[in-house]
């Protein structure tokens, strides 16, 4: 699959990523709810409370980031004049955040040390940094593009 170059390519990428990601984390949520329903000790026991917290966070962050992808796609479609370099940064950091944040939480709950998550949790701050960059870029381009559109009127 060729890398995206046009605004339309990026819109398509993030709409696709967002919806499929939402589907994956919906399945994760369903799995977690099933474990609640059947009182699975692997997930619910107090001794596994770190796992429960980590996987809950993975589900929540993954689902929210999926929605952000869809919103980002709408922003990119609304403002097609955004520079290609900026689009690339937004896209890559957002996808990085979507993999690292929920992935770090999930791995942190796979194996853990009593109250401390496993070393997979180290992916989370990297993902958080990616998300910060992506959101900052989206905010900046939205502001700039709005101003440009207003001044154009």
């Amino acid at each position: 699959m060729a890398p995206p170059t046009t605004s339309t390519d990026y819109v398509a990428r993030h709409l696709s990523f967002g919806w499929w990601s939402l589907f994956v984390f919906l399945l994760l949520g369903l799995t977690l709810e099933t474990m609640h329903g059947f009182k699975i000790g692997f997930y619910l026991d107090v001794s596994n409370s770190a796992r429960r917290l980590m996987w809950t966070l993975a589900h929540a962050h993954g689902a929210l980031l999926s929605l952000i992808h869809i919103i980002a796609a709408l922003v990119l479609r609304t403002f097609p004049q955004i520079a290609t370099a900026q689009r690339m940064v937004i896209s890559r950091t957002l996808i990085g955040a979507s993999v690292l944040l929920p992935g770090g939480f999930f791995l942190g709950g796979v194996s853990f040390y009593s109250g401390d998550p496993g070393v997979g949790i180290t992916l989370v701050p990297v993902g958080a940094a990616c998300l910060t960059v992506a959101v900052f870029q989206l905010a900046r381009t939205s502001t700039d593009s709005t101003s440009t559109q207003r001044s154009g009127h």
């Binding site: 107090v46 001794s47 596994n48 409370s49 009593s114 401390d116």
Partner: peptide
């Protein structure tokens, strides 16, 4: 309790 939930329980 915060760091040793299983032992606490």
């Amino acid at each position: 309790q915060a760091c040793h939930p299983a032992q606490y329980e």
